[in-house]
Write a protein that binds this DNA or RNA. Structure first.
Length: 491
RNA sequence: CGGGGUGUAGCACAGUCCGGUUAGUGUACCUGCUUUGGGAGCAGGGGGUCGCAGGUUCGAAUCCUGCCACCCCGACCA
C-alpha cells in the first residue's frame, strides 16, 4: 500500500498532523490558529456531543446559552481569574468599518470605538455569574444546573489541530448550590461522568485526580481532572471539573437566603470538555495505517465494498449488499454500502482504513458463489471469510469485541508505561528513555513541583483519587510524603 | 518577543548560489481505452499575478531594498 502517513516512529507529531488531514478530520484555516473541522471530523464530534449531552441530562442538567462577548470590567472582578486568562484574550474594540481614505479597501472606523471593550469569551464564568445574580434570591432557586455548548477563544501562541487551537468548541457546565458539600459532590459527579465517557465510549482509560494548587483553574479552590496517556508517552488532560467555592459569588455579589433565613454566598462548580477530546481519541488508538475509532463513536461502523468486473456482477452484489444493509440497520448499526464506480476496491480499502471504519465487508464473485463475505477488522487488520448467514449478528458481536479490544490495548499500554519510581535520577532517566506516567513521592510544596518542571519538563498531572496512603520520602527533597502523585510530560 | 527557516499549479517540491528557449517534476484533476479480491496501466489534455511592492538590467522566479504571511525551536499554555 502506498504510504500516506509519516510513521509514528519517524515523527509522532508529524504522524498526528498527517492523520488529521488525510483522514479528513480537520485542516488549518485562513485564520491563524483556527481550524476548519471537516464533515467527517465533525460527525465524530457530534457523536461525542450527543452522548455527553444525554449524560448531562441524566444527571439533572439543562442547556442554555450565554453571550460570546464579555464586558472587560467583568473580568477583573475575580483576581485569579483575570491573571489566568489576561494574556490570551481577543478583544473587541470597535463596532463599525468604513471605506478606506484612499477609496480602496476597508478600515476600522476610529469614531466607532466602544466605550467599554468586550472580551471574546475564553470561558464563561464571569458572564454567567453576573447573570446568576439575577436568578438567585433564595435557597428555593437552587441548585442551578446549567450547561452550555459553545465556542471559546484563547489566543494561544502555538496551536495544534484539535489539541490546542485559538478557537475551540466545548461544553461548560456552571452550577450554583446552597451548600459547599453539594457543590463538591457536583464537581465529583461530573468528573465521574467524564471518566465514564472516556472509558466506555472513547475506549480511553483515564486517571482521575486532584490538580495541585499551581495547576488549578484560575479562580478554583479545587480542580479535578481526567488524565490520559498518549502513545508517545505524553499525558493529555482530557477533562476538568472545578469546585469554585464562593469565589465567583463573592466577585459578582450572588447571595441567597438559606432555609434558616440567613444570607450567604452561593457555592459554585464548573466543568468542561472540548474538541481536544478529538485529539485524545486519535492519539489513543490510531496506527500507521490511519485512524482507529471505537465503534461506539464511529460515524460509519461497517462499510461494504463490492468487487466486480461487469455491471451485471455489480447488480448481483447490490442485491446481497442491500439486504445486509437492511439487517444491520435493524440492529442500529450505521453502515455504508460504497458501490461508487469511480473508485476501485483497493482505493476504498485504504480510504476506509485511513478513516478508521471498524469493520469492512468485501463481497466479490467468489463470495456470491459461496454465500460468504470477507470481514476485515480495523483494530487488528485481520481478515476472515465468513458465511453470509447471520452476518448481522456477527457484526454486532465484532463491534463489541473491537470496542473492548481497543480499550484493553490502551489500558495495557498505560499499565506497561506507568512506573513507580523512588529516586530522582531514575525518574529523569526513565522519563527521557521511555516517557509515560510516573508515580512518585512529592513533598507537597510548589517549590519542588516547579523545580521538577524546570529540570525535566514533567508536571504533576494529578494526585490520583485512588492513590493509596503510603509513607515515603519526596524523591527530590527527601521530606516525608503520604502518597504518590502522578507525573508526566504533557501536551 | 528572541533564534532559525520557507513562500513557485489543489498538494509536495526542484530551479535561485552563477539573470538568458515556451518555468519543470511528482501527485491530484479532465478525456479515452484496457482494468477492478489492497491506493491500476497506457496515451492525450487543462491548470502558474514564481508571497506583495518598488528598484537594477536589453532581459528577473533568480540580483538589491522594503513589506507581508506561514512553519520550526524557545518563552507562553486553568
Amino acid at each position: 500500500m502506498a504510504k500516506v502517513l509519516t510513521s509514528r516512529n519517524e515523527s509522532y507529531a508529524q504522524w498526528y498532523n498527517d492523520l488529521v488531514i488525510k483522514a479528513d478530520l480537520a485542516e488549518n484555516s485562513a485564520v491563524r490558529g483556527c481550524m476548519v473541522i471537516k464533515p467527517y471530523g465533525y460527525a465524530i464530534w457530534e457523536k461525542m456531543q450527543r452522548v455527553l449531552d444525554d449524560m448531562f441530562k441524566e444527571t439533572g442538567h439543562v442547556n442554555a446559552y450565554f453571550p460570546l462577548f464579555i464586558p472587560k470590567s467583568f473580568f477583573s472582578k475575580e483576581a485569579d481569574h483575570v491573571d489566568g486568562f489576561a494574556k490570551e484574550c481577543a478583544v473587541v474594540t470597535h463596532y463599525r468599518l468604513k471605506e478606506g481614505e484612499d477609496g480602496k479597501g476597508i478600515e476600522v472606523d476610529p469614531d466607532a470605538r466602544l466605550e467599554e471593550e468586550y472580551i471574546v469569551r475564553p470561558t464563561s464564568e464571569t458572564i454567567i455569574w453576573n447573570t446568576y445574580k439575577n436568578w438567585i434570591q433564595s435557597y428555593r432557586d437552587l441548585p442551578i444546573l446549567v450547561n452550555q455548548w459553545a465556542n471559546v477563544v484563547r489566543w494561544e501562541m502555538r496551536t495544534r489541530l484539535f489539541l490546542r487551537t485559538a478557537e475551540f468548541l466545548w461544553q461548560e457546565g456552571h452550577t450554583a448550590h446552597a451548600t459547599k458539600e453539594e457543590a463538591i459532590t457536583e464537581t465529583e459527579t461530573m468528573l465521574k461522568v467524564y471518566a465514564k465517557f472516556a472509558e466506555n465510549w472513547m475506549a480511553m482509560p483515564v486517571v482521575q485526580g486532584h490538580k495541585t494548587a499551581s495547576e488549578r483553574f484560575a479562580g478554583a479552590l479545587e480542580t479535578l481532572t481526567i488524565e490520559a496517556l498518549m502513545q508517545d508517552g505524553k499525558a493529555l488532560q482530557s477533562g476538568t471539573s472545578h469546585f469554585l467555592g464562593q469565589n465567583f459569588a463573592k466577585a459578582f455579589d450572588v447571595t441567597f437566603a438559606n432555609d434558616k433565613g440567613e444570607v450567604d454566598y452561593v457555592w459554585a462548580s464548573s466543568w468542561g470538555v472540548s474538541t481536544r477530546l478529538m485529539g485524545a481519541l486519535i492519539m489513543s488508538h490510531s496506527d500507521d495505517n490511519g485512524l482507529v475509532l471505537p465503534p461506539k463513536l464511529a460515524p460509519i461502523q461497517v462499510v461494504i465494498v463490492p468487487i466486480y468486473r461487469k455491471s451485471e456482477d455489480l447488480e448481483k452484489i447490490d442485491l446481497v449488499a442491500n439486504k445486509i444493509v437492511d439487517n444491520l440497520k435493524k440492529r442500529g448499526i450505521s453502515v455504508k454500502y460504497d458501490n461508487d464506480d469511480k473508485r476501485k476496491p483497493g482505493w476504498k480499502f485504504s480510504e476506509y482504513e485511513l478513516k478508521g471504519v471498524p469493520l469492512r465487508f468485501a463481497i466479490g464473485p467468489r463470495d456470491l458463489e459461496n454465500g460468504t463475505v470477507e470481514v476485515a477488522r480495523r483494530d487488528t487488520l485481520s481478515k476472515e471469510v465468513v458465511s453470509l448467514e447471520g452476518i448481522d449478528a456477527k457484526a454486532e458481536a465484532l463491534l463489541d469485541e473491537i470496542q473492548n479490544g481497543i480499550y484493553n490495548k490502551a489500558l495495557k499500554y498505560r499499565e506497561d508505561n506507568t512506573r513507580s519510581v523512588d529516586s530522582y535520577e531514575d525518574f529523569k532517566r526513565l522519563l527521557d528513555e521511555k516517557g509515560g506516567f510516573f508515580l512518585c513521592h512529592w513533598d507537597g510544596t510548589a517549590e519542588t513541583e516547579e523545580l521538577i518542571k524546570k529540570e525535566t519538563k514533567a508536571t504533576i498531572r494529578c494526585i490520583p483519587l485512588d492513590s493509596p496512603e503510603e509513607e515515603g520520602k519526596c524523591m527530590v527533597s527527601g521530606k516525608p510524603s503520604k502518597r504518590r502523585v502522578l507525573f508526566a510530560r504533557s501536551y
